[in-house]
Write a protein that binds this DNA or RNA. Structure first.
Lengths: 163, 163
DNA sequence: TATTGTTATACTCTATAACTATA
DNA sequence: TATAGTTATAGAGTATAACAATA
């Protein structure tokens, strides 16, 4: 969509009152970040959610599906579809837990580990491009501030006073 | 949903690799901010989108629908429904532009202005609550950094070197 | 033919709840 | 009876495109 008015050709700016609100900016930037990630991972045939699942799997090699969902804050029903897709691509394997046949133990394949390395590179590129207006120290400053907010609003993010 | 594992009772934290990413935090915090705003405005029978429309209307008292959509970056089809709801509540009026009968001129009613004042108070409260982990100077610092990012990723936000 | 506002449609995301198989 | 995984469904949110009136 065009951002310019047909009559004047000048950009119509958002009302200053909205731009003055940090929560407004957070919403807009979060959306922009999501859009960009989505487009980038799509080129790899995957979704940012898949990346998070692969990371969780590398951290805990023999995770149960419920554990993965809990760690990432995903719904269990939602996770099933993600795992289906990853399994279909040969990036992970599901097998029954012999100790409790209700459970599935999930782990990365060699192919999955390769893919994860590629996605890490991609994630770094996305991050770097998105933060490009900021210097190194400014990025650190921003991250520290966001973390303070996340500590309150996303308790699953590690608390600052971690032991 | 529970954030604790049934076996240990300890909180399962997100993988540090994700928490280390500012774009990840932006996505999560943007989502959290959206959720909170939504719940708060719902108590007023409105949506954050309605608030933005009212603000745009106050700034330009006789806006055409297309102009409002452009300023806020909304789709015109989406805007129709928002205006319907606001008109139904008596907060604004639509009338045809005699100069160009395709257009609708939209303006706030007295009731709409009152409502806008209430919503401004609400917005301040939401903002204050969301940023509560940060001191005044830290909030300023965060806002400045977000604005720098928005300048690139949301060009409709006023550029810093505004004249 | 192009534009304004409107309506209809479809697609994504997400949340919920039923269902199965095991315990 | 409760739990792990699965499936189905519905709801909100959003994007796209067709449509009628007017220019």
């Amino acid at each position: 969509m065009s951002v310019t008015t047909p009559d004047t050709g000048t950009t119509r700016l958002l009302p200053p009152e909205l731009v003055a609100s940090s929560t407004f900016l957070l919403k807009r930037l979060g959306y922009a970040a999501k859009e960009r990630s989505l487009a980038a991972y799509e080129r790899e045939g995957l979704h940012p959610y898949h990346f998070a699942v692969l990371i969780a799997l590398e951290a805990g090699p023999h995770e149960t599906q419920g554990a993965i969902a809990d760690v990432l804050g995903y719904d269990r029903g939602q996770l099933v579809g993600l795992l289906d897709e990853l399994e279909e691509k040969g990036l992970l394997e599901r097998r029954r837990d012999p100790k409790d046949r209700r459970r599935h133990l999930v782990q990365l394949t060699a192919e999955g580990k390769r893919k994860l390395r590629r996605l890490r590179t991609l994630a770094r590129e996305i991050e770097d491009e998105f933060l490009s207006p900021l210097s190194g120290p400014e990025r650190d400053e921003l991250h520290a501030l966001l973390l303070r907010l996340a500590e309150k609003h996303e308790p699953r993010c590690a608390p600052l006073q971690a032991d």
